[in-house]
Each structure stands twice: as structure tokens, then as C-alpha cells.
Computed example of a mutant assay.
Amino acid sequence: MRHRSVLPLLLAGLVLLAFLAFGGTGFLGQLTEDTTPEGTSSAVPAPSAAPGTSASPGQVNPSGLPEVRESALPAEGRRVLELIRAGGPYRYSQDGQPFGNFERILPRRDRGYYREYTVPTPGESDRGARRIVAGADGEKYYTDDHYESFKYIAEGS
């Protein structure tokens, strides 16, 4: 008899665990956030800019990641930056969709803070591995290896 009363509790626990694990920045997101001994977040605040707009030239790199000058990006990357600044139109339906930052390479932010955009790769039959990820405060990052590494884009240079 005892196993029958435990089964519903076990199932409810599994459902709750799945909800928390896939529910974005809920309870589990708070547990994984780095904190200082005083309990405050250790995330570096990003400079302010209107969402969807470009970061101002000379913006401080909020990530500590290596930087790449805008002028050093491939031509396709520079075109995608122009499209992001103009608000589109984008080539792929996935462009402008939320980027989950599951790799945790970029600074931790609330779910939906980052958006991803495809940087086309000549000769590729699919979207390829190159992306620009834009933060709501205007900072942008480039990856050419499908999120294995990122570089902060120093815009205007």
C-alpha cells in the first residue's frame, strides 16, 4: 500500500523539477546565479542603451570577452549589424529570436535579454555556424563556431 502513496508524490516532484529546469530564470536560474558573499549579484551591469539600438561607439565591454572591431568582421557580419540597427528585414525566420545563453559564455541576464541573428556563410547550404547575438542594452557579440566562443563587437571601429 505504501508504494501507491509515494508514486503520485514522485511524479509531482518530477513534473516540478522539469518545470523549474526548463522554465527559464525561475528558481533554478536564481540558484545558478553567481553571488558575492554579501548576496548581491556578481554580474557586471551593462551600459544603458535603448533596446534594439546599437551600443554607442566606445562602449565599455561588459563581458570581459576578447573584442573584435566591427571593421574586422566578415562583410556578411557587417551587413547583419546594419540590419540589426535598422530593425530588419532579416533573411532567416530564426533571426531576432531569443538566445538562451545555455553555454553561459555571455554575461548572465534574464531570459529574453539576448537575441540571435544569422551571419550567412558563403557556400553553406544551411545557416552555418556564424551568429551575432545582441543584448537588450545594445551590446553585440560575434561567434563563428556556433556558440563555442564569442567576441564582443567593438562597434564603430
Score class of each variant (00 low, 15 high):
residue 1 M to H: 10
residue 1 M to T: 12
residue 2 R to H: 12
residue 2 R to F: 12
residue 2 R to S: 13
residue 3 H to Q: 11
residue 4 R to C: 06
residue 8 P to Y: 04
residue 9 L to T: 04
residue 13 G to S: 08
residue 13 G to K: 03
residue 14 L to F: 12
residue 16 L to T: 12
residue 17 L to F: 14
residue 19 F to P: 00
residue 19 F to A: 14
residue 19 F to Y: 13
residue 20 L to D: 12
residue 21 A to K: 09
residue 21 A to P: 01
residue 23 G to N: 10
residue 25 T to S: 14
residue 31 L to G: 09
residue 32 T to N: 10
residue 34 D to P: 11
residue 36 T to N: 13
residue 37 P to N: 05
residue 38 E to M: 10
residue 40 T to A: 15
residue 40 T to Q: 14
residue 41 S to Y: 02
residue 41 S to V: 08
residue 42 S to Y: 02
residue 46 A to C: 08
residue 49 A to I: 03
residue 51 P to R: 08
residue 52 G to S: 06
residue 53 T to E: 09
residue 55 A to Y: 05
residue 55 A to Q: 13
residue 56 S to H: 12
residue 57 P to Y: 03
residue 58 G to A: 07
residue 59 Q to S: 14
residue 59 Q to R: 13
residue 59 Q to L: 10
residue 60 V to P: 07
residue 62 P to N: 06
residue 64 G to F: 05
residue 66 P to K: 07
residue 67 E to S: 15
residue 67 E to R: 09
residue 67 E to T: 13
residue 68 V to H: 00
residue 70 E to A: 10
residue 70 E to N: 08
residue 71 S to T: 02
residue 72 A to N: 06
residue 73 L to V: 02
residue 74 P to M: 01
residue 78 R to D: 01
residue 79 R to S: 14
residue 81 L to W: 04
residue 81 L to V: 09
residue 83 L to V: 03
residue 83 L to S: 11
residue 85 R to M: 01
residue 86 A to W: 04
residue 86 A to V: 02
residue 87 G to A: 08
residue 88 G to W: 06
residue 91 R to G: 13
residue 91 R to P: 07
residue 93 S to N: 11
residue 94 Q to G: 15
residue 96 G to T: 07
residue 96 G to N: 05
residue 97 Q to C: 01
residue 99 F to M: 09
residue 100 G to M: 08
residue 101 N to R: 01
residue 102 F to A: 15
residue 102 F to W: 12
residue 103 E to H: 08
residue 104 R to Y: 06
residue 105 I to Q: 11
residue 106 L to Q: 09
residue 111 R to K: 14
residue 113 Y to A: 06
residue 113 Y to Q: 03
residue 114 Y to S: 00
residue 115 R to S: 11
residue 117 Y to K: 01
residue 117 Y to F: 15
residue 118 T to R: 03
residue 118 T to S: 07
residue 121 T to K: 12
residue 122 P to G: 05
residue 122 P to A: 11
residue 122 P to N: 04
residue 125 S to F: 11
residue 128 G to T: 06
residue 129 A to C: 09
residue 129 A to G: 09
residue 130 R to K: 09
residue 132 I to Q: 00
residue 133 V to H: 04
residue 133 V to M: 04
residue 133 V to F: 02
residue 134 A to Y: 07
residue 136 A to R: 14
residue 137 D to V: 04
residue 137 D to C: 10
residue 143 T to V: 05
residue 143 T to K: 03
residue 144 D to W: 04
residue 145 D to E: 09
residue 147 Y to Q: 02
residue 152 Y to V: 09
residue 155 E to H: 02
residue 155 E to R: 11
residue 156 G to R: 03
